[in-house]
């Protein structure tokens, strides 16, 4: 019988710990497929964050390092400087990247570190149990914002891609979403492009992926996808903010 589909070699056989309906699985697959299709699995080194995707080092089949909370970009800087010909990526959530690791991502972008960041934004802390993130929307409830985020108390949600797009050496910045199939296809394209740009040595690249957390949002997986589309996209528009052509 002819093989019509195979799981990417970029992922291990390990069963993931993610909640049913979580979009991390999709995003893992997009990253792994991109590495495989670009022939980079043999020289890829990934950095896992602290947060829901902390075990990513067990799921990706390439070499992996587990960084401390928020420091994946610093860790990736060390790796890439030692192995400049490698395909280095960080895989980080919004608590990890936009809160405790805000300095590291800004400065990695400022230096134009030649690695790729996959930034999974689901507007909440997942692993620790639904606390407010810098990306939590106004009015969105979280365990540390029980009445919903109040802008006068906790400020406005941070738009990371827009902020990083102001940095000259962040040559590729794109926000994508995985709430439906056409958007998943677009997300894959952006991730692949980010790795291509890294291998060309053009500078720092980041793909922000809007994602769901049905468990901590208190919704079914299907409701969560709908909520993402209706609530997150209006505040976090899906678009390309920077690409190397534009830089030229």
């Amino acid at each position: 019988m002819a093989i019509v589909f195979q799981k990417t070699k970029g992922l291990t056989e390990k069963q993931t710990h993610y909640c049913p309906g979580c979009t991390h699985g999709i995003i893992h697959r997009l990253v792994a497929e991109s590495l495989e299709e670009l022939g980079l699995l043999d020289k890829a080194i990934g950095v896992a964050p602290v947060g829901c995707s902390v075990f990513a080092y067990d799921y990706f089949s390439c070499d992996m390092q587990e960084a401390s909370h928020g420091r994946a970009p610093a860790c990736a800087t060390g790796i890439k400087r030692v192995h400049p010909d490698s395909a280095v990526f960080t895989y980080q959530g919004d608590g990890d990247l936009a809160s405790i690791g805000a300095a590291e991502i800004v400065h990695a972008a400022m230096r134009g570190e030649k690695f790729t960041t996959i930034f999974v934004n689901n507007a909440i802390y997942g692993m620790t149990g639904g606390q407010m993130a810098p990306t939590t929307l106004i009015g969105q409830k979280a365990t540390t914002a029980p009445l919903g985020r109040d802008e006068n108390h906790a400020g406005m949600p941070l738009r990371v891609s827009e902020m990083l797009a102001t940095i000259p050496k962040a040559v590729f910045v794109e926000r994508v979403s995985v709430h439906d199939v056409p958007n998943i296809m677009k997300a894959k394209k952006a991730i692949k492009k980010a790795f291509e740009i890294q291998m060309k040595g053009l500078g720092f690249g980041i793909v922000e992926v809007l994602s769901t957390c049905s468990t901590n949002w208190g919704k079914t997986p299907v409701e969560a996808l709908k909520w993402l589309k209706e609530n997150m996209i209006p505040y976090y528009p899906i678009q390309n903010f920077r690409n190397p052509e534009e830089v030229k």
Partner: peptide, 11 residues
């Protein structure tokens, strides 16, 4: 943490 990354990379 850069030291961590570079040491992990074998340097």
């Amino acid at each position: 943490n850069m030291v961590y990354g570079a040491a992990g990379a074998g340097a």
